[in-house]
């Protein structure tokens, strides 16, 4: 069986290699701090399940501290010059798309097939891990295809990996840190405070106001937590079930589905959902970290209004 841990191991090797390359580049400013940052990130992937949470926690905090007040500077890593890239594109033509399509293609096939194929009485991957295991496999297949088709050497791929990963920068670890923040919010009871605050404001029998409080509350709380899944149980227990379903007789399926999607409107509008909003901005090398959020806000707001009306029209009808 291909365990998810193997894929994490692969990630750890990549991050440690990037750390090493940062160290070997003598012209690189802040190279020691950058090395420490990427190597610690690598260690959390290599040995994450072996280390006690307290030790990992200390490592994570150390990793954050080396980034400093102003964040680490950007490393200058070169790639092939534009002329060479154009010539290469003219020569390789549609072959260029083969490795590019290997990633989604193999991920998709693997997700479908790996849990169904058994070897020595065990599936090749557990159903719950199949997508991530397949993603790991797809990268290996695509890498082999790219090295072979483009006549490149393996170290070049690590060099290119460093170029892109350092372009993303320390934001790469932000989604995992935000997950830790979400967990601490939950431990400290932030959800209860927010839902008490929202329920405090609404009269229990004005239908439209109750619905409005629920959909807007879902969106707002999602914006704070960065995740609609964290907001859902709190808002449904606070407003959705006691007021909309039990008191006003609304349909629980509509309440649940449209409520969750109102939360997704919040996801579009918050930097706290870093893996969807901040990471892509870094990946596309946008100067404004909030560039993607800003483009999504109008859609988020209009859709939230539509969701509120949809729920108001549908929830009492079925």
């Amino acid at each position: 069986m291909i365990r998810l841990e193997y894929v994490y191991f692969l990630g750890g090797l990549l991050f440690c290699s990037v750390g090493l390359l940062e160290f070997l580049d003598a012209a690189n400013p802040q190279r020691l701090r950058k090395t420490v940052f990427w190597v610690i990130y690598g260690i959390t992937f290599l040995f994450g399940t072996l280390l006690p949470p307290f030790v990992t926690g200390c490592l994570v905090i150390l990793m954050v501290l080396v980034t400093g007040w102003k964040d680490l500077s950007r490393s200058k890593v070169d790639t092939a010059p534009e002329l060479q890239r154009r010539q290469s594109a003219g020569r390789l033509k549609e072959k260029l798309f083969i490795p590019a399509l290997c990633i989604p293609g193999v991920t998709f096939l693997g997700t479908l097939l790996l849990p169904k194929i058994s070897m020595a009485g065990q599936p090749l991957a557990l159903a719950k891990d199949a997508t991530l295991v397949s993603l790991g496999l797809s990268v290996l297949v695509a890498l082999a295809a790219a090295l072979w088709l483009f006549r490149q050497r393996f170290p070049t791929s690590l060099h290119e990996g460093r170029r892109l990963l350092t372009a993303v920068g320390t934001v790469a670890v932000l989604p995992q840190l935000l997950a830790a923040l979400g967990a601490l919010f939950a431990d400290a009871g932030v959800g209860k405070v927010v839902s008490e605050g929202v329920t405090h404001f609404i009269p229990g029998d004005a239908r439209f106001l109750v619905i409005l409080a629920f959909t807007v509350g879902m969106a707002l709380f999602t914006m704070i937590m960065g995740n609609a899944f964290a907001a859902f149980p709190v808002m449904v227990a606070g407003i959705g079930l006691p007021l909309i379903v039990h008191k006003l007789g609304g349909d629980p399926a509509v309440m649940g589905a449209v409520g969750m999607l109102s939360g997704y409107c919040g996801t579009l509008m918050t930097p706290m959902a870093a893996n969807f909003n901040i990471v892509p901005a870094a990946l596309l090398e946008l100067p404004d970290k909030n560039g993607v959020v800003k483009v999504q806000v109008p859609t988020g707001l209009i859709l939230l209004a539509v969701n509120t009306l949809l729920m108001y029209v549908l929830v009492f009808r079925f």
Binding site: F45, V60, L135, A142, F150, S157, V168, P175, Q176, A183
Partner: peptide, 29 residues
Amino acid sequence: EFGRAFTQNRYVGLVWLTLPVIGLLERAG
């Protein structure tokens, strides 16, 4: 809690595995 949540959410970081391949693709045009 920092350590536990950070480890539990490592799956988000697996997307970076694609970067060496994407870098090679960009280098090749």
